[in-house]
Design a protein around this nucleic acid. Structure first.
Lengths: 361, 361
DNA sequence: GCCGCTCAAGTAAGCGCTTACTGGCACAGC
DNA sequence: GCTGTGCCAGTAAGCGCTTACTTGAGCGGC
């Protein structure tokens, strides 16, 4: 009816709708927001006008007035390009997996509540990072921060402006945290390797030293190795960085120095394991025949590797969905800060640990 | 200085800053927006107050007033869960790749201009999709729509509200489009298979029938096959859906019906090829010995498959970055609508086409 | 028949910014 | 000494919504 074909015009406002329906803007707003007040006939007139004009309220105006943006910010850490060209691993690409699956989970949960995701990444040595994150904070109702997205010392400052939920961190008095059960997951995996397979020597190929997840995984493995009286290797030579290139480099250096390899290598995460698998295969070392390799996370590619990767599954999407739910409950009340939510993990036995292909999948 | 430790308070406003600095809010705004007007001493007083209070302007207020949100919306299509459990393919996971790499490209480009990404997904038979997309449109300055994110008939309606750039679509009078060079890419690949390898029979395992990219790829392959006098197979039996499960199903049905396989199968994209590879391997058919298989896109996992996948590389990140740049140029002027931007592709020879491992990588 | 109550719909005050316009002051030119 | 010219900084008018408050009509009770 009042259709307009020319494209270069600004969208209709609530005033246009009110005029078309012959009512005040307050009535339009009330109809649109489900207020019981307007009577049937008025409601219909308004709805018809809305449909005719194709009216959709402006997000900024709505947010300003209602003090609610219905947007949550998500910040993750990007890998710089210059570090990416080690071997054949384009880290930027590989690292997509874990983060993006979580984001998918956040998005699905957010959508159900009418929220949208504002995503932003920060580089490793990004001078501008803090300012950009603050900008995102002010464009949203709350922030979800991925592992090491911001330095812990900045957390309090951000949390003062908006509710904050961290992933793979530790809860602080002003922020909540959501993570998988690293301890239980790694314990189960360690016992499988040490007891079921009986491997006498085992190494932990670490992730970032400042990652709480990394520390928890290492600790669980060390404890189980000690209990099983197995030889446990870690330390500087076994320091990776959560990416394939890091894992590959550790193996390459070890081999170059003619160091003996342990019977089993538990990697801090799946991406590290990808690098290890490639490095070993390049040197003709059989997995799992000579060395067993395991990951952590169960990212989608894990099942496409050769051999298929034994790992600890984290409920990745659910991690994201939970982070959103917690954040949502903090918005407008902020009373859940300080909470620590831990989701259960599952051991996924495939081939790389030495199990036969038929193992639990 | 004016530091506050209690967390439950609302962020400072421009009024707080003005009061602290002893100036009007207009001066604060001018200092913050780089207006040359304020003199040095005033500027310093304001900046000190801003730092003391940790002031960051509210995005909604800024957007409403400046008529610019500095947010671009990105919409992609989600695969419904119920279609995902075919074989061992969690489509939801696999399909992350292409879309997410593009999004990464968009984000990096956007960030440079101070923009953020608002991401949203729509389900296949999502009744609510149009409303949600409109909401996103009104929360951003423009929209980037992934392949088949919205039905073409809705495009004009959306484009009337905000500038729109589509990916892998076709430009319309009111929208711009960015895509890889399907024709050239597939032509190069086809010639390699038909002429270099001399395969006498070849099939096209199609993607979604309503995808322009799919049609362009099919057409190029058909043309080259005809020119090389090779037998070209396509049609309903070869209808996939861009996902691994689709590719696997096509192969499974063909084999179940005892149909002879062509010497080479060119898949609509890499994900389809993943499914084909798995299905063939499950039936003990050697790739590339008995059947050569190729993909399109060169998503990150392509190099981790066995055999490593020969494919046509699209500059995925760049596709995203370009989409943003085009959109940006439309915001506030909308004069680039109707443009079609085509980015070059590269043939990536690995093993699955029959080349030896040392081929161009 | 007047009072008070209920319910629908209008009026207007913000929400926190940007920016056009206005005012005041210092200085130059006549 | 007065007006013209710049500069700065303040005043106030929105941006497009939501919502508290106000108005007014309809109506039952005494």
């Amino acid at each position: 009816m009042a259709e307009q074909d020319r494209s270069i015009q600004s969208p209709p406002t609530i005033y246009d709708v009110a005029r078309a329906a012959g009512v005040s803007i307050a009535s339009v707003s009330r109809v649109l927001n489900g207020n019981r007040n307007p009577r049937q006939e008025t409601r219909e007139r308004v709805l018809r006008a809305v449909a005719d004009l194709g009216f959709v309220p402006d997000g900024a105006a709505r947010a300003l007035s209602a003090r609610l943006k219905e947007v949550v910010g998500v910040v993750f850490r990007r890998v710089p390009w210059q570090l990416t060209s080690e071997g054949s691993f384009a880290e930027e690409d590989e690292s997509l997996q874990f983060t993006d699956v979580i984001n998918r989970g956040i998005e699905v949960a957010a959508q159900r509540q009418g929220y949208n995701l504002l995503v932003g990444s920060v580089g490793v040595d990004d001078q501008d990072a803090h300012r950009r994150i603050m900008t995102m904070a002010r464009k949203s109702d709350g922030l979800i921060l991925h592992d090491r997205a911001v330095h812990p010392s900045r957390l309090a400052q951000i949390a003062r402006q908006v509710p904050v939920v961290t992933l793979a961190g530790i809860a602080s008095p002003v922020t909540a945290n959501v993570r998988g059960d690293n301890g239980a997951g790694m314990t189960e995996l360690a016992r499988h390797l040490l007891l079921d397979h009986g491997y006498p020597t085992i190494a932990y190929l670490a992730g970032h030293a400042d990652s709480p997840d990394n520390l928890a995984r290492r600790e669980a493995l060390a404890r189980e190795a000690a209990r099983a009286r197995a030889l446990f290797a870690d330390g500087p030579r076994w320091q990776g960085n959560y990416y394939a290139a890091g894992g590959a480099r550790v193996i390459a250096l070890l081999l170059a120095d003619k160091m003996p390899l342990p019977r089993a290598i538990a990697c801090a995460n799946d991406q590290t394991a990808i690098g290890v698998l490639h490095a070993l295969s390049r040197h003709g070392i059989d997995v799992p025949g000579e060395v067993a390799v395991t990951g952590f996370d169960d990212i989608p590619v894990a099942r496409h590797l050769h051999p298929r990767l034994t790992t600890v599954r984290q409920p990745i999407q659910e991690l994201g969905a939970t982070a959103f739910d917690v954040l949502r409950s903090m918005i407008g009340s902020r009373d859940r800060a300080g909470r620590e939510i831990v989701l259960p993990t599952t051991l996924v036995l495939r081939e790389s640990c030495g199990c036969t292909a038929g193992g639990r999948q």
